[in-house]
Write a protein that binds this DNA or RNA. Structure first.
Lengths: 228, 228
DNA sequence: TTAGTGCATAATTTCGAAATTTCTTGTAGA
DNA sequence: TCTACAAGAAATTTCGAAATTATGCACTAA
């Protein structure tokens, strides 16, 4: 588990570190998070760990059963479908706002974010079957930038939360080789082109297709159990 | 501050009680929430209070500045506008799903929830200038029921969170008499009729207008400061 | 074998005080 | 009068142990 020092408070450090470990898949969904283990690993008291965990609970990244401890939120086919639908509809809605409200400076940021992503190898240099962690970061930044033209902070925040939740499911798509069957680079290029051209209907449609495709490939592969 | 006993854990009790006090307006936005005062009022240690507060922070009902304590989230005109727009768009989206996916049993629940609300006086018996707390509850239940036909838990949860945030602003509309200028009962009746008739375009339009109206009246009244 | 009971163990929850940081007040100097 | 600095007060943050609750296992009876 990585330890960042951005936060002033101890529980803030644990929160950020744990959040990163969960989103990156270093700790897999369903894993139990016992106080003893965590407080030993970080060297902080249980009170500090407890606060970090409760914050993650409200973000839906961690589940808590009273008197039975905390565990990384478990994933299910039903939630994956619901999450994908919610993302698809709300992100396309927010993209529409973004394109109508965003100025030239925003457009240039989109272009820059896309360039950065296009020039980062998507697969790990050492293990070509795993995603490159740096690419995951710039990919997420690209999608965030797409929506940053939207002046409505409530909408962009909701989209951010939903994208975080979606990260929990990435291990599934990473484990199966299904992800390789698509041409993600072409999809991103098409979205960028449509956004810069100001073609709202096309851009929103492309974004929805982009979000839906990952889930569809996953479901069609039969890898995902009916419920878990 | 009321103390409910639904939760098994102490921090759960504090969380529920504090949440109710904030949503009902008994504690107003911007109010500081010092540990000493809260731990004395509830009779629990600061650790318990701290956990309840951090959970409320993640729900955006409470703000936290590191080393400077907690306070009820302050309200602003900009956020009110953003919140209203987000609610309007996402709730109407969810209502569409609800109407397309909901069955007859759901329709009967809508009818029941509307009946319950219509038969509850909206103003307090003792103080006719204040809203009746029971009406607030059944009114919220009515709006929640409207969306319960939607099978997508992610969408309905987001709508619930946004409605909670909107509650923070109710004191503004309650303080000014502006709320009386509208015929809320007629609006609710029209929405219910359209929902039961299966008229999706009409129902979603009426819901959007219903959500927008409160904010518009508030802004037109000039009561809301430019930023606070 | 199966179900139920009681005990030992392990984990979570809570407390109250100590450590740390921020806020306030008062004083001295320019 | 104003600013800068310092000491005291107040509040938040953290700790480590005690209290409470769940879990696992052996044991008994049907």
């Amino acid at each position: 588990m990585t330890v960042s020092q951005l936060s002033k408070t101890r529980h803030g450090q644990v929160y950020e570190s744990l959040r990163g470990d969960i989103l990156s898949g270093r700790i897999t969904p369903g894993t139990k998070l016992p106080f003893a283990q965590l407080s030993e690993r970080y060297g902080f008291s249980v009170g500090v760990i407890r606060e970090a965990l409760s914050r993650l609970v409200e973000q839906r990244l961690v589940e808590n059963l009273p008197q039975q401890g905390f565990r990384v939120t478990s994933i299910s086919k039903a939630d994956l479908v619901a999450l994908t639908q919610a993302r698809s509809e709300i992100e396309s809605l927010t993209l529409k706002h973004s394109m109508l409200e965003g100025d030239t400076s925003w457009q240039s940021e989109v272009l820059a974010a896309h360039f950065r992503m296009a020039n980062t190898p998507s697969m790990d240099a050492d293990d070509p079957d795993r995603l490159n962690e740096e690419w995951v970061e710039v990919h997420n930044a690209f999608h965030a930038t797409l929506l940053e033209g939207c002046n409505n902070k409530r909408l962009t925040d909701i989209c951010g939360q939903l994208r975080d939740s979606a990260e929990l499911y990435r291990q599934w798509s990473a484990r199966i080789g299904e992800a390789k069957k698509r041409d993600a680079a072409a999809e991103h290029q098409a979205i960028t082109d449509a956004v810069l051209a100001g073609d709202v209907p096309l851009a929103t449609k492309l974004l929805r297709d982009h979000i839906d495709l990952t889930t569809r490939l996953l479901l069609e592969s039969g890898f995902v159990a009916e419920d878990s």
